[in-house]
Design a protein around this nucleic acid. Structure first.
Length: 874
RNA sequence: GGGAGCAUAGCUCAGCUGGUUCAGAGCAUCUGCCUUACAAGCAGAGGGCCGGGGGUUCGAAUCCCUCUGCUCCCA
């Protein structure tokens, strides 16, 4: 142990020093080792464009705790890091950057654009991984992957080709979610529904033969020009007579049929629907059913197209207002009404989604979803907390085909090649496509310039769903050592919002390509919100910069802060105070070390009191370890942290150390110090997964360590038998003797320095004798004397009666009241117990030990009542 | 409109298949202490008809029904 211990713990210097030490000694690197059990976590790859936010902090802290614990438990632990190419987000960012430089994506062309994008990625991509190091993340950085690196892209392409050949991928015209800002299709999962206030316009459609008009309620008057029918409910008495007749579409004065369908909700608006097959999914389906014409009045960018005939080129929202105005001018706008409705917005660009008919690629989900549901139902993959199972089931049972094509350039280009006649050749490369043309279609003359590759790329999730396999090169070489050893991985830690996007699909891919699930446990973290419960976001400015937090509270402090109040699956209401609490805890640990490391030592056998303290502390440690391990198996990490926190703060610092602490200026006995150091060492290893830096620093100062040694690879404490009797006896002594003595001091304003004299304890409590030295020390009392009958002020507990000497005085009113209340309570309690015991059905039905416990309660209560009455009578 | 879930102390939550004086923890609050590792600390205390109503049971915070209020997911 070093002589000099700095008075203050200096985290920033210590944290960067140890992180470098860990890297230098390659402590996080892992290779398959048949001697050891494998433990693997793959990181949910953050976007290359990303910077660390609070969600990452929580998520990665949890992963680090899990992987560090596994590593210390002697498993061959690996945490594979990497980043995601994030098609839309990254492309949007690069496009914006180019725009600043006066460059345009289309003018540049695909090749040049991708060059810019890659340059951008090289420069800014992966900042987030550097930031993770500040948090202490023990990733195996030598294994860092990127979803768009050549190997991983190849896996994506091969999987596409394979699924196409299996008949699971098809191309078709469908109504998709169109992002008019990103100019791409999106999957259902990328659409976020938001409630907004909007206007419902009541529009008049003139009827033929001067029969008047029909009023239609619509939120989208700008699509009126695309109407190709009106529709009413077949049994709606109001309109039945009009079915089969014609109505005139306003603004464009086109006659359309009035049709009937029981899809119509008679309650909504006027019960008449304008059918616009090109711009609404339900209308689209109606259109298919009734073979209606489709008039697409919008351009991809959300402006009105030539087909609209009027307002061509106007933005859809501008056109909406104009259309309303025009209708009003023509006397066709009956009224406007404020309503609340749901609109879909793009997860990435925020633009209001436009349902749009277009040619896209789809993956059939049904056959993939079925087995993926099964493995969650039967707990092959466990969701933590399990409440997400229900949500998972609901989604998997109603899964839609996955639109996997995106009209972007940043990503894996779809390996489909089109011949001039429209024939599709799906192959990893152009060469191989030509080979198919030759082999399958016998087109020997076809050459490269005769076929053209689909310009679109694949949805980013189409590469991330392969992540747990592809990071171990399981596609390139399905039998390699890594994948055989690490797959299936153990735990996946992620946010519930991507349960379907990502988790479900990884399970599908795992089952499809490895015939095995990709992970055994899925820990779903909550969303990090601010104190008012608002989601943290850039626009609200309510998200603290994680690096600032680390600078202020230390990485250990922030880690503790994040975990203190984040049970799995619950949103975390983040409050900087939690980080402060975390920092205070690291500080507490440091100060405990200053105490233990700062004593003069003298050769001495251990005293019986110290020996008791050591046995008790060890019993508490074993108890806490058992609890903690149990909580870890249930993924109740936050609770496990609480167990550790209380063990160190309350049991070790406030109790154990106070017992063994020698009087001021006195040296400590060598034996008890040795015991204390090994206890401390144990506690550090127990705490290390949560707070890696401070534990490493103290651990190194606490004993002689070899070069390259680290607490990261020291062994995690192992479970031993808990001495439960010792624990329960000490807790009785604390609750019924020590705490009341301290209370007595408080209420009588006796200084802690004053030695309490003349305490008596009842002879009936002789079992307590061995524990009295503990009370003498912590309560600062003189020796107790045993007596048959107590004199002075008597304190009556359940198991212990004792007294302090006192000049003759009446109990004051307050004290009396308190004792009376206690007496009343105990009497009531006794009554309940007696009733229970006299209830034959209880005695007959309840378990024997339970009845025995009730009997014990009865004797305890009776004893207490007698003692209280005695005190009150005196 | 369909589905999942929640309601326990001022706040955030725990309380597993009913039974340990079961009504708990942390934070916050209050009281007293600058006690010799730590005031970023120490020693204590107060605080809840377990959302309302009904039922099952010897026994309900826990199981069932219902009402009310909230959240999330999907359309």
């Amino acid at each position: 142990m070093k002589a000099e211990i700095s008075k203050n713990y200096n985290p920033s210097e210590i944290e960067s020093r140890w992180y470098q030490y860990w890297l230098d000694n390659k402590l996080f690197e892992s290779k398959p080792n048949p001697e050891k059990e494998a433990f693997a976590i793959v990181i949910p790859p953050p976007n290359v464009t990303g910077v660390l936010h609070m969600g990452h902090m929580l998520n990665n802290t949890v992963q680090d705790v899990l992987v560090r614990k596994a590593r210390m438990e002697g498993k061959e632990a690996v945490w594979v890091p990497g980043t995601d190419h994030a098609s839309i987000a990254t492309e949007a960012k690069v496009v914006a950057l180019l725009k600043e430089q006066g460059l345009d994506k289309k003018q540049l062309g695909r090749e040049k654009f991708l060059e810019h994008a890659f340059a951008w990625k090289e420069k800014y991509g992966g900042i987030i991984l550097e930031q993770l190091k500040k948090l202490g993340a023990s990733c195996d950085w030598s294994r860092t992957r990127f979803t768009m690196e050549p190997e991983l892209s190849k896996a994506v392409i091969d999987v596409f080709v394979d699924l196409y050949n299996k008949g699971l991928i098809y191309r078709g015209v469908r109504m998709v979610n169109w992002d008019p800002l990103g100019l791409t299709a999106l999957s259902d999962e990328e659409v976020i529904h938001k409630e907004v206030r909007s206007k419902l316009y009541y529009v008049r459609y003139e009827l033929e033969n001067a029969q008047g008009h029909l009023t239609v309620a619509t939120t989208r008057p700008e699509t009126i020009m695309g109407d190709t029918a009106l529709c009413v409910h077949p049994e709606d008495e109001r309109y039945r007579h009009l079915i089969g007749q014609k109505a005139k579409v306003p603004l464009v004065n086109r006659w359309v049929n009035i049709i009937a369908d029981d899809y119509i909700d008679r309650e909504f608006g006027t019960g008449v629907l304008k059918v616009t097959p090109a711009h609404d999914i339900n209308d689209y389906n109606l259109g298919l059913k009734h073979k209606l014409q489709v008039i697409d009045v919008l351009n991809p960018d959300g402006t009105l197209s030539e087909a609209a005939e009027i307002m061509v080129g106007e933005d859809r929202f501008v056109a909406r207002k104009k259309a309303a105005k025009m209708l009003a001018e023509q006397g066709l706008l009956e009224k406007e009404e404020e309503i609340t409705n749901n609109v879909g917005t793009s997860e990435r660009t925020g633009a209001v989604i436009e349902p749009r008919i277009s040619m896209q690629w789809f993956l059939k989900m049904e056959s993939l979803a079925k087995p993926a549901l099964e493995v969650v139902e039967n707990d092959t993959v466990k969701l933590h907390p399990a409440k997400f199972k229900g949500m998972y089931r609901a989604w998997m049972e109603n899964v839609h085909d996955w639109c996997i094509s995106r009209q972007l350039w940043w990503g894996q280009q779809i390996p489909a090649f089109y011949m001039k006649d429209g024939t599709i050749l799906v192959a990893p490369t152009k060469k191989e496509a030509l080979k198919i043309a030759r082999d399958k279609y016998r087109l020997f003359a076809l050459n490269e310039s005769d076929i053209e590759q689909d310009p679109d790329v694949l949805d980013t999730w189409f590469s991330s769903w392969l992540w747990p396999i592809s990071v171990f090169d399981g596609f390139k070489n399905p039998d390699n050592e890594d994948i055989r050893y690490y797959y299936p991985t153990n735990d996946l830690v992620t946010a519930p919002e991507i349960l379907f996007f990502w988790v479900a699909r990884m399970i599908m891919a795992g089952l499809e390509y490895r015939k095995e699930v990709p992970f055994k446990n899925v820990y779903l973290t909550g969303i990090v919100r601010d104190k008012q419960g608002r989601k943290m976001s850039k626009s609200l400015g309510n998200s603290p910069d994680p690096l600032d937090l680390i600078a202020q509270y230390s990485a250990d402090g922030v880690r503790i802060g994040m975990l203190l109040s984040s049970p799995a699956g619950n949103d975390l209401l983040f409050d900087e105070k939690l980080c402060e609490q975390g920092r205070n805890f690291t500080n507490k640990l440091w100060n405990a070390f200053r105490l233990v490391g700062g004593w003069e030592v003298k050769e001495q056998e251990i005293s019986s009191l110290d020996s008791l303290a050591v046995s008790w502390m060890q019993a508490r440690m074993n108890q806490a370890l058992k609890e903690s391990n149990d909580l870890f198996t249930k993924f109740r990490i936050s609770d496990a942290l609480h167990v550790m926190y209380k063990l160190i703060w309350d049991d070790f610092c406030s109790f154990y150390l106070e017992i063994i602490k020698p009087a001021y200026g006195q040296p400590i006995g060598s034996s008890v110090l040795q015991e204390t150091i090994s206890i401390f060492d144990w506690l550090l290893r127990f705490a290390h997964p949560f707070m890696p830096f401070v534990t490493e620093e103290i651990w190194h100062q606490l004993g002689e360590r070899k070069s390259g040694d680290s607490i990261c690879i020291a062994s995690y404490p192992s479970e031993k038998v808990v001495d439960a009797d010792l624990l329960s006896q000490v807790s009785v002594v604390v609750e019924e003797l020590l705490v009341p003595i301290r209370n007595y001091r408080n209420s009588n304003q006796i200084s802690p320095k004053t030695v309490l004299e003349g305490l008596q304890i009842s002879n009936a409590n002789s079992w307590v004798k061995p524990y009295l030295p503990l009370v003498v020390k912590l309560g600062n009392t003189a020796e107790f004397t045993f007596a048959d009958s107590l004199s002075g002020q008597v304190f009556a507990g359940k198991r212990l009666d004792w007294s302090v000497p006192q000049e003759e005085r009446e109990l004051n009113a307050e004290e009396k009241e308190k004792l009376m209340a206690e007496l009343e309570y105990t009497k009531g309690f006794l009554l309940q117990v007696e009733q229970k015991l006299s209830n034959e059905r209880f005695v007959a039905n309840a378990k024997a030990d339970l009845v025995e416990k009730e009997r014990q309660k009865k004797t305890d209560a009776e004893a207490k009542i007698a003692a209280l009455e005695k005190v009150l009578a005196s």
